[in-house]
Simulated scan of single mutants.
Amino acid sequence: MTTRAPGDTLRIGIAGFGKIARDQHVPAIAGCERTTLAAVADPAGGLDGTPSFASLDDMLREADIDAVAVCTPPQIRHDVALAALAAGKHVLLEKPPGATLGEVDILSRTAERAGLTLFATWHSRHAPGVEPARAWIAGRKLRAVRVTWKEDVRRWHPGQAWIFEPGGLGVFDPGINAFSILTRILPAPLRVTEATFRTPENRTAPIAADVRFAAADGVVVDAALDFRQEGPQTWEIDVEADDGRLVLSAGGAELAIDGGAISLPPEGEYADIYTRFADLVATGQSDVDPTPFGLVADAFLMARTETVDAFHDPAEAGKR
């Protein structure tokens, strides 16, 4: 393992080069003065102008990298991250940090024993409206919280059948973003009290879900999640307090208080993530918060399941 000084550039290899890696990780790494993209590993192909490898093993063996950003489907993140740690590399995990809570615990313990940084990212916590929302909520008496998180899976995950397989989370792949915000802005811990899943007859994971949480301070939180929304997409958290109302929308990029829009800086979720990663590596720390993932796991434990019509994605047929 190479020790990095605070001013050193962190050389990163991306494992798994799909949509999220191309759309978010590549530009964020390029835009951060303290990171550089040094390699890509994916059997389906890499990035022009960047050393690219057909396998993780080849990248770990041949590339000049300090860290690995794991952007594979969650079902294989544990094995990829474990191999990177074994090779002496720091690891950044896309959300969710694995397929199970047990996997995350193993990775956390392994990184600690090796003296390496492990960063389980929650990109939605870095949305510009999250911290102002947290500050407004602090000290207020809350009445109710409502989450509406509805998007079109065909638009955001075209042809990605893994998302409906065991470990893929189904609608909780985006829904966990809402839970990551809730666990940041609300002052009291949450527990799942009820859940209803709607699972297509030809899939394993839910395409829609309703979840109710109870906070330790008595506040009830209701979440409605749906992967079938067409037209405008909805990512909203509505907080009602005794003395006002806050609405965090567009996934945390927009904030309104008592109906008035609050001025916010531009979005920079992944840029913040890579700055944070560089800080963690430079100071020899890790950041692994499994709380949002635990809420998803509890929802699966508490859920009543309803079978709904089969779901078909034309983009999957194109991959066969």
Rank of each mutant, 00 (worst) to 15 (best):
M1I: 11
G7F: 04
D8K: 09
T9E: 06
G13I: 10
I14H: 04
G16I: 07
I20S: 09
D23I: 12
Q24I: 05
V26M: 01
T35K: 00
T35F: 00
T36Y: 06
T36M: 00
P43W: 03
G45T: 05
L47Y: 09
G49I: 00
G49N: 00
P51V: 04
A54R: 13
D58K: 11
A67T: 07
V68E: 05
A69L: 03
V70K: 02
C71A: 10
I76M: 13
A81S: 07
A81L: 02
A87G: 14
A87I: 07
H90R: 00
V91A: 00
E94I: 03
K95W: 12
P96D: 12
P96A: 06
G102M: 01
G102Q: 08
V104P: 08
S108G: 12
A111V: 07
E112G: 09
G115K: 01
G115N: 06
F119S: 00
A120E: 07
H123C: 14
R125Y: 02
H126Y: 10
I137C: 03
A138F: 05
G139E: 05
K141C: 13
V145G: 04
W149S: 14
K150A: 15
D152T: 02
R155N: 13
W156I: 14
P158F: 08
E165K: 13
G167Y: 05
G168K: 04
G170K: 02
G170M: 11
D173F: 15
P174C: 10
I176T: 10
F179C: 01
F179T: 02
I181G: 05
T183A: 10
I185T: 04
L186G: 15
P187S: 06
P189D: 10
R191W: 02
A195G: 14
I207T: 15
A208E: 13
D210R: 13
V211P: 11
R212P: 04
G218A: 04
V221P: 06
L225P: 12
P232D: 15
T234M: 03
T234G: 09
W235P: 04
V239C: 09
V239L: 11
V247C: 07
L248I: 02
G251K: 02
A253H: 14
I262L: 08
P266F: 00
Y274W: 04
T283Y: 01
G284L: 09
D287K: 01
D289S: 01
P290Y: 06
P292F: 08
P292K: 08
A297K: 11
M302N: 13
R304D: 15
E306C: 13
A310V: 10
D313C: 14
A315R: 12
A315P: 04
R320M: 13
R320C: 10
